[in-house]
Simulated scan of single mutants.
Amino acid sequence: MYDKADLRSTLAGKAASAAPVDQLYDAEYGLFYRDPPVEDDANGKTWYVRGQNFIIAYSEALPGATFERLGQADEYMALLPDADTPANASAGGQEAQSDGYALFIMPPGDGRLTLEKGGRIVRIFSAQSPDLVAKCPNAEAYAAQHANIPAFQPWPQPPGGYKIRHYSLDVPAEPGRFGRIWRCTTIMVNIPNKQKGPRDLTKVSPHHHDDFEQCSLALEGIWQHHMRWPWAVDMNKWHDDEHTEVQSPSVTVIPAQVIHTSTWHSPDESQLVDIFAPPRVDFSLKPGWVLNDSEYPMPPQ
């Protein structure tokens, strides 16, 4: 249910899927502002959390920090949410540089990201890397595949082959385009512009996703995630509504089939990044919404 001014109200519906599974799941949280980091070393501090199909590695990097992946199974993303965060990416004999406020897509195989001055970096992986899964404090929540989420299937390989891709986040808003969306074979990110002041509570957006989770990464501000679980046949499985307040930085993983909306409450700037794995078909079908759609084909429909 979207306000008529919300561009998501124009999304095409899809054929109804199977009836809701009589087994719904709890929301998952990574409260990086509160919980101790999983890693605290020469690279800085790094927190991990996972959903069914993705892993978030949020780092507050020290100058010279180097994040290396050897034999990486598939593509991943690296988000530099702040300006003046110079970074060097290398993989497959290729190098790319960024001054910050940017998104890298890194290819499978061996690769490295170095932050000359340190700063914030968010690496976003699929859950196909067991070594990273093991670092997630909530790994046990996904010890068994969630019944209402299909098995992970990556999208088709890019026709130009795997390589480092680099995108500036400095993309002006356009009428009719929702957020700033990029995708690769494994991940989709939507990076809206920062919000100023609290949300208008007369124009919220309760909705649900039949068969995928939503990862909401709070980078700035105070957020409240409102969630309502549908009723199951067995009343013992009913779940109270949740209205969970989180600060930044944090991750909230919203389960499939759960009605949700988020409100922001800071008097200053707030920012929330939404992450999906694999990419969303409905967003991808909207002309102009995915900024790099020409580089990544959609799966056969």
Rank of each mutant, 00 (worst) to 15 (best):
I254C: 14
K163N: 09
L169G: 00
H209D: 11
Q195K: 11
W231S: 11
L217W: 02
H243L: 06
D241N: 13
Y167C: 00
I191M: 05
H225A: 12
H207Y: 15
V251R: 02
C215S: 06
I222W: 05
Q224D: 15
H239T: 13
G176A: 09
D234I: 00
H225F: 13
C215V: 10
H239S: 09
R228T: 14
E242C: 09
Y167G: 00
R199F: 08
W238D: 04
R228Q: 15
P172K: 11
D211W: 00
P175S: 13
Q247E: 14
M235R: 13
F212K: 02
M227C: 12
H260K: 07
K196S: 08
W155V: 02
W223N: 08
G221L: 04
A232W: 04
Q257R: 05
P192D: 04
W264G: 07
Q247G: 15
P198V: 03
D234P: 03
I187K: 00
V233Y: 13
S216R: 01
P158N: 01
R180V: 03
W182L: 02
G197S: 05
V233C: 08
T252V: 15
M188D: 09
A218H: 11
K237G: 06
W231A: 09
G197H: 03
R177E: 13
V189Y: 00
G160R: 05
H226I: 04
P255A: 07
P249I: 05
P154I: 01
E242G: 11
V251G: 09
D234Y: 07
V233F: 11
Q247D: 14
M227Y: 12
E220I: 04
M188P: 03
E242W: 09
D241G: 10
P192W: 11
K194I: 05
T263G: 14
T261R: 08
R228M: 13
H209E: 12
T261Q: 14
I181S: 04
L201N: 13
Q157V: 07
R165E: 15
T252Q: 14
S250H: 05
N190F: 02
H207S: 09
H265S: 06
D234N: 07
N236V: 00
P255Y: 00
P255M: 06
E213N: 03
E242K: 08
T202S: 15
E245D: 10
H265C: 07
Q257I: 04
A173V: 03
W155D: 05
N190G: 03
T185Y: 09
G160D: 14
A232L: 05
I254P: 10
V189A: 01
P206K: 13
L217I: 07
I222M: 01
D240Y: 15
N190L: 04
V253Q: 13
N193V: 05
D240G: 14
L217R: 00
A173F: 02
H207V: 12
D170M: 02
H265E: 06
S205I: 12
V251K: 02
H207E: 15
K163M: 09
G160K: 07
I164N: 01
T244N: 11
P192T: 08
Q195E: 10
K163Y: 06
Q195I: 04
T244L: 10
M235T: 14
P175W: 15
P192N: 05
A218L: 11
P206F: 15
L201H: 08
P230C: 05
P172N: 11
N193R: 12
G160V: 09
K203L: 14
G161W: 01
